[in-house]
Design a binder for these strands. Structure first.
Lengths: 159, 159
DNA sequence: ACGCTCATCTGCAACTCATGCGAACAACCA
DNA sequence: TGGTTGTTCGCATGAGTTGCAGATGAGCGT
């Protein structure tokens, strides 16, 4: 998403008001790479502005998301995660600790799809499930050997 | 997932009982390509067995999923979807009607990932968002031209 | 066939995440 | 400074899912 000062301009130009709550959330989200949930952001915001409402956090996140300043992620972890990085990228999610990180795919995309049956693709989301380095360090390293390393997938197709 | 008769054997061998409710759900799920939600499956099951409980449907779906017979999909559409196809495949989801379909990626995977920072990938999920043929047929075809066709993504990387 | 045992089913309550609503509030402009 | 109007806040509500406990019935031994 854009910087807090840029967002100030954008919001004003659309007849939206620049409240202290919004300014705080802009600052807390800008450059934030933790993919916070609404609740996590609420806790963080509460530390800076006691009394701020969870409802306001949801409202602002939805506003930013519908303006295209935030990406809303449904990773199946219970609550939605928000990502101020709106460039083309994808995510890893640790099955042990739940941490979400941005990743960038390289290599020769595009990949083609068999039999789209007239479906027109707008966007693609890739989620890599696995175990992060910190969590692996805290376990016996033996069983991690039978896992695919650094590879997204080998051959697809089966049933 | 395996056939209803195979599941019968598996369940019995694990000390689990073969109730009429489970047998019905096995039949309704086997070969089902509609990616039903728990509620959708409940409605379908109710037509065959009035009085079956939604709670039982959830229970059985969770059992099958934890046994690896079902894939549980979190597509951000409110409720979880269940897919008896547990082979390596991915999904399209129509932003208009919500329909989920299986797709198979071709071309020379693997795609490599920049800077996994020690993260070990277990599995990858690709979700293609877009518009299905039926929904496109029901709209003016003009605006669909500026969408990418049949391409998962072009170049990745940005911020 | 019968009865026993324990897994399962069912209905309801509870829980999580998210949104609708309306009154109080405050940012912005004249 | 005062008025307008978008915003905030707290509560109620809604969707989706799970916990719980009593009733039920599948599977086993006899």
């Amino acid at each position: 998403m854009r910087s807090p000062s840029e967002l100030t301009t954008v919001f004003r130009s659309q007849g939206m008001k620049l409240t202290p709550q919004r300014q705080l959330l802009f600052r807390l989200l800008h450059g934030n790479i933790t993919h916070p949930s609404a609740d996590a952001l609420y806790l963080l915001a509460s530390a800076h502005m006691p009394g701020i409402s969870l409802r306001t956090v949801y409202q602002t996140l939805n506003d930013l998301a519908s303006m295209g300043e935030l990406q809303q992620l449904a990773l199946g972890t219970g609550s939605a995660r928000f990502d101020p990085n709106i460039g083309a990228h994808h995510h890893t999610i640790c099955q042990r600790c739940g941490e979400v990180r941005d990743v960038y795919l390289t290599g020769d995309m595009p990949a083609y799809v068999q039999d789209l049956a007239g479906f027109v693709v707008d966007s693609a989301a890739v989620v890599l499930h696995g175990t992060c380095a910190q969590c692996r360090a805290g376990e016996s390293t033996a069983k991690s050997d039978n896992r695919r390393n650094n590879v997204v997938y080998n051959k697809e197709n089966s049933t």
